[in-house]
């Protein structure tokens, strides 16, 4: 086996030499320091690579392309139909910024929550709402759509002078489709006139349906990552369905850590995050259970995440 040891050492060394990036160590250190100074916490939303480095990874390229495209091209290219089918800006004037806190991302100012962006993420602010309470930023994941965040969580590199940004973000009028009443009396009733949604945001939770005995189901569930070390966070995801509507997903966890809570709905997913702080080793088994408005409980689903301690 000594021969194998030598072979592995030599081969690994050659591979490392092949992979070794250019030795601009000062540039890398400066770039890392600049990210930390800007509030970046190493969150996985966007990749950034130190300037002058060979072997630039995909995420780095996407980040670079995003800044260039958003400033020079995307504003015009998106034209009249943006991602999500929301109002689109005729011209994008970008202001580099960072999130000072994690925030839900809305499709329009105060509208439907379509995702979340972690604290420290670098964004390009491209619009502001009339009341200055919301900022439109280029979606850091796709670099195509515009997401709306509370202005209070966005810190501009130049001190947050948003006045130069174009106005936008108004949510389109939403009309509520009338629901056929489920009543024993078949007598015809006047069809209600559709009316404008009185306020932004997602619709109310589904109302309980008489006689609904069909339990909701968690159709898919997963966690990422499934192995976390000190102060790292694992997020458990679930996709749930029901004949009327899922009103919530309860989650509990046992093992190296224990507790219970509610999963948060983000877009079509239900999510729950657990951070390995204080760091501990062992496995944690999450149990998720969906429920509907009638009180039906779905079958429990379990997902295991391994915790480990370093250092």
């Amino acid at each position: 086996m000594a021969e194998l040891d030598e072979l592995l050492r030599d081969s690994f060394a050659r591979i490392a030499e092949t992979d070794a990036p250019a030795r601009d160590s000062a540039g890398v250190a400066d770039a890392i320091r600049a990210r930390v100074a800007s509030g970046d916490t190493g969150a996985p939303a966007m990749g950034r690579v130190a300037p002058g480095w060979g072997g630039v990874g995909t995420a780095g390229w996407i980040g670079a392309i995003g800044v260039v495209a958003a400033v020079g091209v995307l504003g015009a290219a998106l034209g009249a139909s943006g991602a999500f089918g929301r109002p689109v800006l005729e011209q994008a004037v970008g202001t580099d910024a960072a999130l000072v806190a994690s925030a839900d991302a809305h499709a329009c100012a105060g509208g439907e929550v379509v995702g979340s962006i972690p604290a420290g993420t670098r964004v390009l602010a491209i619009a502001r709402s009339d009341d200055a309470g919301w900022l439109g930023v280029r979606d850091p994941a796709t670099l195509l759509g515009t997401l709306w965040l509370p202005a209070s969580v966005v810190a501009g590199d130049a001190g947050g002078a948003w006045d130069a940004l174009p106005l936008g973000g108004a949510c389109p009028d939403v009309y509520v489709e009338p629901v056929d009443p489920v009543e024993p009396d078949p007598a015809p009733t006047d069809e209600p006139e559709p009316g404008p949604n009185p306020g932004p945001g997602p619709g109310p939770n589904p109302s309980p349906q008489p006689g609904d005995t069909t339990p909701p189901a968690i159709d898919q569930w997963w966690a990422t990552p499934t192995l976390i070390y000190d102060d790292q966070t694992a997020t458990v995801f679930a996709l749930a369905s029901d004949n009327v509507g899922v009103t919530g997903v309860a989650i509990s966890w046992t093992g190296a850590k224990s507790g219970s809570g509610e999963m948060t709905k983000v877009g079509s997913e239900w999510r729950f995050s657990l951070t390995n702080t204080p760091a501990t080793s062992g496995s944690v088994t999450f149990t998720m259970r969906a429920r509907d408005a009638a009180g039906n409980l779905g079958a429990p689903r379990t997902q295991t995440v391994t915790l480990s301690v370093l250092g």
């Binding site: 990036p21 890392i32 690579v49 990874g57 250092g311």
Partner: peptide, 24 residues
Amino acid sequence: RQDAADAVQDALVGYLAKPPGRPI
């Protein structure tokens, strides 16, 4: 190997921005 440099830099940023609770 293409994503390795990004990942290492992210890890270093995370280490500096939010150091682990114990000495490494």
